[in-house]
Every structure is written in C-alpha cells, then in structure tokens.
Amino acid sequence: MPKTQLNVRVDEATAEAARQRALQRGMSVNRYIEELVKQDAGEVGHTFVEAAADFMKQYESVFAEEFGPEREGPRHEGPRREGTR
C-alpha cells in the first residue's frame, strides 16, 4: 500500500512521549503512530478475532476430544472461579 505523508502538530511533551514509546518498542515514531491509529480503528483487533476463529475451526475436534462433547459449539458460560464447576 502506498504511503501518504501526514503532518501533525503536538506539544513537545506529547512528541517526546511518542519518541520514547517508539524507542521502547524498537520502532520508528511513524510506525508507532500508524500502529496506534490501526488499533484505534479496530483493524488489529479484527484481524486477531479472525485468526482465533480460524484456529478454533481447525482444532475443534482436538478440543472436543480433550474436554468432552459438552464443551463443543459456541456456548460460553464466562470465566470460571476457583472451586466452582
């Protein structure tokens, strides 16, 4: 995908925070800002959910074998607390 230049103005504290966060993550400030926008737009989360759904389809039989047929399907009861069933 071709890149487009985007100029923004922020105060020095915000600019320094962006530089430091990018450095901590081992990426450029441009890449850091790009990742933040993608996360905010939901693109990263959507990709993760699609990959997780694909994984579950591929390994559904393995999970059913390991955890029993009562755990098959889209049923979700929420997180379990210790000491409960």
Results as ranks from 00 to 15, higher is better:
T4M: 06
T4W: 08
N7T: 09
N7S: 15
R9A: 02
V10H: 09
V10D: 08
V10L: 15
D11M: 06
D11Y: 11
E12M: 05
A13Q: 15
T14K: 14
A15D: 15
E16I: 07
E16Q: 13
E16R: 10
E16D: 13
A17L: 13
A18N: 10
Q20C: 08
Q24K: 13
Q24L: 07
S28H: 05
V29L: 10
N30D: 11
N30W: 02
R31F: 02
Y32K: 03
E34A: 13
E34G: 06
E35L: 00
A41W: 01
E43H: 05
G45I: 02
H46W: 10
H46N: 08
T47A: 14
T47P: 01
T47Y: 08
T47R: 14
T47C: 02
F48N: 00
F48K: 01
V49N: 13
V49H: 12
V49G: 04
E50Y: 02
A51L: 14
A52D: 03
A52L: 11
A52R: 03
A53R: 08
M56T: 05
M56D: 15
K57A: 04
Q58W: 11
S61D: 15
V62A: 06
F63M: 07
F63I: 03
F63S: 06
E65R: 05
E65G: 07
E66R: 12
E66M: 11
F67S: 04
F67T: 00
G68E: 08
P69C: 10
P69S: 14
E72A: 09
P74D: 09
R75T: 04
H76R: 12
G78D: 06
P79T: 03
R80N: 08
R80W: 11
R80L: 15
R80P: 03
E82G: 07
